[in-house]
Design a binder for these strands. Structure first.
Length: 570
RNA sequence: CGGGGCGUAGCGCAGCCUGGUAGCGCGCCUGCUUCGGGAGCAGGAGGUCGGAGGUUCAAAUCCUCUCGCCCCGACCA
């Protein structure tokens, strides 16, 4: 592509709304433009990169035996009602009605549609296993779209679904997808790790997230440097042990003005872990009290799973006051009526605890679980912290940040059951199909690649997903130079490289700056300095190294460089 | 949805407090000179100051409502 004909609107300054590097650089380099909150137009450069990622996805998924389909965006409500998600998915689901008042939604994911398809078409064990995927626009009315293409309301996602006869088969499909994903992200030039994850609203029993390590990531991950264990903090198990403690008798103490754990802890001159936080939640409409040691944070995902609830939220002040008959800050398990109490396992049989007394300005000391109050369920309820013991090897965990670019789930029969996706085995017996589902955020992968590969001048594309491999830069736009550039352009194109030619009548500095911003892996500079010796300068974006190569050798030289890089990274 | 902030030329911003001529930098157009890391000079185009109401002789500026956007939290690829 020649710059003079191209649509590459680069910007010197990033729009004020862009917060993270990838967003800024995508806007500045002319890849994307915003239409509305979380809704973006892909310009030619952005589209090229996205297409390259999609191509890698197709190659690797096809290689693993999956087949591409294309499912409708417009989904009838009826299907979603069958699985119960019309209600469960909530406000995130974009709903609409047609002229006959029939209800539809725009697909935020496609378990319903694909399972319905398979339920209709698959009869026999001979049809299994089956693995289908699509690359398509998804719609989710995110509460808070942000970071450009990283969390949009309309975005491109690759979603795939596997269908197997049984658990064993499903596990094998899952493993194949993990392998495919590993190849995909490696080819995209990303440093990533597959971490254990919570299976969330989609449901299911087992899942991994593919996280690209980046300080701007929205996810916190626990990582063990010793055995390699990695998990989303939401999922990362914590087993707390509180120090032994005699306890003493239950006693109500006047604690004026002490609301927070710090204040109460200071009041009694006792360490925070002897305090117990009692947090009141509304879980699917029912009040629940969750107790955790005072020095810890509650993990809402774990709480939700423990309660087997669809939706939980922290009770508001009014509700808390109603339930505890006191101001906010004095909730405790002793004498708390009509509320289910769950607690972190560390509290089981524990004595000498300081808890709220459900009376303004009063706390109990010397409370003992099992004696002064009873808990209906114990579970791991806290958020993992830096230094916690690794569940694999007991070494200290560290906390890192990551961007979730992919997610693999073992779904089980959740959808195949509600949509009646079954098959007959060799003996004619009917079984429910066992499913898995696998997602990759395509735009997010592109953004993550930028987060990991950039410098102060702009993007440094990994060669396999660069919009163009080489940018030819004539220093002077005169006939002699342009003739050489055109020659190089043609031979590179016929060698199969993606090549840009900056034939604009601009000063060289402008071209260099744009080339660095856009992030072409190589610049081929054709100018008087090199031409004196009959040579072209090849400059690597990544290393900044410059090589002088004879004009007639430049094409094959570049071709070798690029090919080598594509292969080594693949 | 709760908390914080912002809407003035394509982009980045000033002006608003204390009402009275709409400004700066970049970009864009024309010309000349330049030409190896975002050139210089000269000339020029471009703005219903997010929208609606109100106060006032007079509103970008004050008041009310509204729409949009961004940041912090719960959701997720």
């Amino acid at each position: 592509m020649r710059f003079s004909r191209g649509f590459f609107p680069t910007l010197k300054e990033a729009p004020a709304e862009a917060e993270v590097v990838s967003h800024k650089l995508m806007v500045r380099s002319g890849m994307i433009r915003r239409l509305a909150a979380g809704v973006y137009t892909l310009l030619p450069l952005g589209l090229r990169v996205q297409r390259k990622v999609e191509q890698i996805l197709r190659e690797e998924l096809n290689r693993s035996g999956a087949q591409e389909v294309f499912l409708p965006t417009l989904n009838p409500a009826e299907l979603w009602r069958k699985t119960g998600r019309w209600e469960i998915y909530g406000k995130e689901l974009i709903r609409l009605k047609d002229r006959h008042e029939r209800e539809f939604c725009l697909g935020p994911t496609h378990e319903e549609v694909i399972t319905d398809l398979v339920a209709r078409e698959v009869r026999s064990y001979r049809d299994l296993p089956l693995n289908l995927y699509q690359i398509q626009t998804k719609f989710r009315d995110e509460i808070r779209p942000r970071f450009g293409v990283m969390r949009g309301r309309e975005f491109t996602m690759k979603d795939g679904y596997s269908f197997d006869r049984d658990e064993t088969g499903a596990e094998q499909s899952y493993e194949e997808m993990v392998q495919a994903y590993t190849r995909i992200f490696r080819r995209c030039g990303l440093k990533f790790s597959a971490v254990e994850a919570d299976s969330g609203a989609i449901g299911g029993s087992f899942s991994h997230e593919f996280m690209v390590m980046a300080d701007t990531g929205e996810e916190a991950i626990t990582v063990c440097n010793s055995c390699g264990y990695a998990a989303n903090v939401e999922k990362s198990p914590v087993s707390l042990k509180l120090p032994e403690n005699e306890g003493g008798e239950l006693e109500k103490v006047h604690t004026p003005g002490a609301h927070s754990i710090e204040e109460v802890s200071e009041f009694f001159s006792l360490p925070p872990y002897r305090m117990v936080k009692t947090l009141l939640y509304i879980a699917d409409g029912e009040p629940v009290a969750a107790m955790i040691p005072g020095h810890r944070e509650l993990n809402e995902t774990k709480l939700k799973n423990t309660l087997d609830a669809v939706d939980i939220e922290l009770a508001d002040a009014e509700t808390v006051e109603q339930l505890t008959n006191s101001e906010v800050g004095f909730a405790g398990p002793v004498g708390l009526l009509g509320v289910q109490i769950v607690a972190d396992t560390s509290i089981e049989n524990c004595g000498g605890l300081v808890v709220g007394a459900n009376q303004t300005d009063y706390h109990y000391t010397g409370a003992r679980e099992g004696c002064d109050f009873t808990v209906s369920k114990f579970a791991d309820l806290t958020v993992a912290q830096e230094g916690d013991a690794c569940p694999g090897c007991e070494a200290g965990l560290s906390i890192k940040r990551g961007i979730e670019v992919g997610h693999v789930f073992k779904l089980g029969c959740k959808y195949s059951e509600s949509l009646d996706a079954t098959y007959q085995d060799e003996s004619g017996e009917t079984h429910t199909i066992v499913m898995g589902c696998y997602g990759i955020g395509v735009g997010r992968t592109v953004a993550a690649a930028i987060e990991q590969n950039h410098d102060e001048d702009g993007i440094i594309w990994p060669t396999p997903i660069a919009p163009y491999h080489v940018d030819i830069i004539p220093v002077r736009v005169d006939d002699e130079t342009m003739e050489i550039c055109d020659g190089l352009y043609n031979s590179l194109e016929s060698a199969g490289l993606d090549v840009a030619l900056d034939d604009r009548d601009e000063r060289p500095g402008v071209k260099f700056k744009d080339a660095d911003l856009i992030g072409f892996p190589y610049k081929a500079v054709v100018g008087p300095r090199g031409l004196k010796e009959g040579k072209i300068e090849l400059k690597s974006r990544k290393t900044g190294e410059t090589l002088l190569v004879a004009i007639n050798e430049a094409a094959s030289f570049l071709n070798n460089l690029v090919t080598e890089e594509m292969e080594s990274i693949g």
